[in-house]
């Protein structure tokens, strides 16, 4: 080995040492930044989910893990009439099962709040004081949902409720009732309330999408001869369509997590004879109200996740 090679060897060694120093320094920095947050996140968010996935295949003695039972919890839960009530579904009678109720929320609430949100965003878009008007619509979204549930109970009360008073004034006495406690209509009454709160959120997203549209596009369309409807159909709608995907998916997530409003109106049972129970309520009752059935609670909560997870990943992929 020549002297030159030797020197080269030394320099290389030294360089590697330097790189290692940088790497060690970076690793320490990474640990300092990441470890505290990720530890708490891991213990209190990731671990319980893993625990639930794992536990859903075991039998439970109240809160204690017992033995592996395979898909037993899954089959038992998914055939439970509290989750899906086939006979009642065929007769269109409530309760139809929590999963069905959740899907009904999705089918009615999500399109309605999306369209209303878009409509209000368009209506307010060029008005003076639009910030204030928007805040009036949105403020309900910042109110605790449990309060929303109680407000709905109050509105639908047969005597003190404004809704029934409106019916009386309109001469529709036969419709006056305690809406949140009438099994066959209560879910629609609650969905209406959900739309009332959630429209503000859709409107907010649409408003920001609308304000991002270059005004000269609309002016150009105006010059080209497009009327208000054409401008909406040809310019505004195509440009806010990506936001619609977000609005719809966020709506579905919100509805699939529905708990507080239903609990406020119907307690842990989800209404008289579970008439408008949702999956969240079933998880809560199975896990924390006797007779405790941890296995079922875990399965139902995982079902909630399975419905929503692909949608959340879709949003993430969009960006």
């Amino acid at each position: 080995m020549s002297l030159q090679d030797h020197i080269d060897g030394i320099t290389v060694d030294r360089d590697e040492g330097g790189l290692l120093d940088i790497d060690r320094e970076k690793a320490v920095a990474l640990a300092v930044f990441l470890v505290p947050g990720l530890t708490l996140f891991g213990i209190f968010s990731v671990a319980p989910i893993v625990y639930s996935v794992f536990g859903s295949f075991f039998s439970w003695d109240t809160f204690t893990l017992e033995s592996f039972v395979g898909l037993d919890n899954w089959i038992r839960s998914l055939t439970d009439q509290l989750i899906i009530h086939w006979p009642n579904m065929q007769e269109l009678r409530y309760p139809m099962g929590a999963l069905t109720h959740n899907l009904l929320w999705v089918v009615i609430h999500v399109p309605a709040s999306t369209f209303l949100g878009l409509g209000l965003a368009l209506l307010f878009a060029d008005l003076k004081g639009r910030r204030f008007l928007r805040s009036m619509i949105f403020v309900g979204f910042t109110v605790p949902p449990i309060v929303i549930g109680l407000v709905l109970m109050f509105i639908y009360d047969p005597r003190a409720g404004l809704f029934n008073e409106v019916l009386r004034v309109l001469g529709q006495e036969q419709w006056v009732r305690n809406w949140t406690q009438s099994p066959q209509v209560a879910i629609y009454a609650l969905i209406a309330g959900g739309i009332w709160v959630h429209t503000g959120f859709s409107m907010l997203l649409y408003s920001s999408a609308l304000s991002a549209i270059d005004p000269s596009l609309l002016e150009s369309a105006k010059v080209d001869g497009a009327g208000a409807w054409r401008r909406f159909r040809d310019i505004i709608w195509p440009l806010v369509r990506p936001v619609t995907a977000v609005v719809v998916i966020m709506g579905i997530i919100w509805v699939m997590r529905m708990f507080d409003i239903v609990y406020a109106a119907g307690g842990a049972a989800g209404g008289p004879n579970h008439a408008y129970s949702v999956l969240g309520i079933e998880v809560y009752r199975a896990a924390f109200r006797p007779p405790i059935d941890y296995g079922m609670a875990m399965v139902v909560a995982l079902v909630q996740l399975f419905i929503v997870a692909p949608l959340a990943l879709y949003i993430a992929r969009m960006n």
Partner: peptide, 30 residues
């Protein structure tokens, strides 16, 4: 639209979601 004018904007105001042909054809379509 009642004045039969055409205007070119500083930032061109091309409709980003339409192809070039659709952009050019838009005033005719309307």
């Amino acid at each position: 639209s009642a004045r039969n004018i055409a205007m070119v904007f500083q930032n061109y105001a091309l409709y980003p979601h339409m192809t070039v042909a659709e952009n050019i054809g838009y005033p005719l379509k309307v």
